[in-house]
Design a protein around this nucleic acid. Structure first.
Lengths: 203, 203
DNA sequence: CCGCGAAGTTATTGAGTAATCAGTAATAGT
DNA sequence: ACTATTACTGATTACTCAATAACTTCGCGG
């Protein structure tokens, strides 16, 4: 039985070496998923390594510490939401019935962004990770980052939608309710989409 | 240097023995505070023991496991909110200007309960603990308990206030926004009260 | 084909941590 | 006063986990 090792590696040509940047990205995705479920302290670097398919210590060549990895994950998470919002605002009437009901342009855009958000968080990881980020705010560095990204998201949403401060507050409030409801599984996973629309008051 | 030990114990007469029930309660309070900040996995039983002023192993005589302690803390937390709501609903016009503006009885009661909630979570621990409870919902036992208590709270709130389903959804959505905003310290601790009133849409 | 930098691993450490056990001291009941 | 019960602690265990160090392997440019 010679050369048992690397038998798997050779096959196909997949899962060979990746560039550091690629690996960083893979680790980041795995990290968001893992952190989303178990939180900062409940997730071990070992878990993240296993999901990524690399050894645990290699994480620390890509990120200086577990906390730094978490911070990077926060950025990635907000980036995704922001991107979805921008795209929805640019093209408010795609995949939406909002051009039927009239409404002001601001309403239409907010509406479209709501749809985008619901679609985005249909995969629950993003939603759950957000909750974990809020929960981890005892750490001051994390709190600062989350706060900064939250404020930026509100600003961007305001600019994109042109909605008033009160409208936005209500809008975000409903989003947060959606987060909590998803966390505790008040709504069956399959029905999350429909429920989301209802909770946000759209559609 | 004889009898150094117990020198502290003798003095005064305080910090002597408590009944198991008393200690259980003390541990529970300390646990809520600690869990609120660091979460289920970020809080060690040692921390809770230190806060309570007992040895770490004694925790495990009062609670079978750390998770059971957390579950008990969840119950205590929701109990407190529920109690505050009941009290507010029974006597809606105490410490409130709501008898000035008319409004339906349901509105007045919801209004009063909103005030009660804001007052309750002015000490942030309750708020933060709630977030930690939602975040810990990856554990199925915890999720079930949180879900059960949440549903019960909604039912109680509905009965007490007589508000409609839509009113309640909005009400709870704003509460959740308040939670998040408090978590990330978007609002200075001192101003939390005023901000809370504004966020909940109460005068 | 060689060697050098980048990608990746194994082994290890040191600090912490939930939980158990075996015991000690205070109090209540008689 | 004495004993049974109840409150509580110290020592320890078995284990996990972030982080480091020291090593190996790959693949590219010359």
């Amino acid at each position: 039985m010679p050369s048992l090792l690397k038998a798997s590696r050779r096959s196909g040509g997949r899962d060979l070496r990746h560039s550091a940047a690629e690996r960083r990205d893979e680790v980041l995705r795995a990290a968001v998923d893992a952190f989303a479920i178990h939180g900062l302290h409940g997730t071990s670097t070992e878990m993240i390594a296993k999901r990524t398919g690399i050894s645990q210590p290699y994480i620390f060549r890509l990120f200086p510490s577990k906390k730094d990895l978490f911070l990077a994950a926060v950025d990635q998470c907000f980036d995704r939401v922001e991107a979805a919002f921008r795209k929805a605002a640019e093209n408010p009437d795609v995949a939406t019935a909002s051009h039927h009901l009239g409404g002001s342009p601001a309403d239409r855009r907010l509406h479209a962004m709501g749809h985008a958000y619901v679609r985005l968080v249909a995969h629950r990881e993003l939603l759950l990770f957000q909750m974990q980020a809020y929960a981890a705010c005892a750490d001051d560095e994390i709190r600062r980052k989350v706060k900064q990204r939250w404020e930026r998201l509100m600003k961007v949403t305001a600019e994109l939608s042109g909605a008033s401060r009160d409208e936005l507050t209500l809008y975000f409030a409903r989003g947060m309710l959606l987060n909590v409801v998803a966390s505790i599984g008040l709504v069956p996973e399959g029905a999350a989409d429909a429920w989301g629309h209802k909770a946000l008051g759209i559609g």
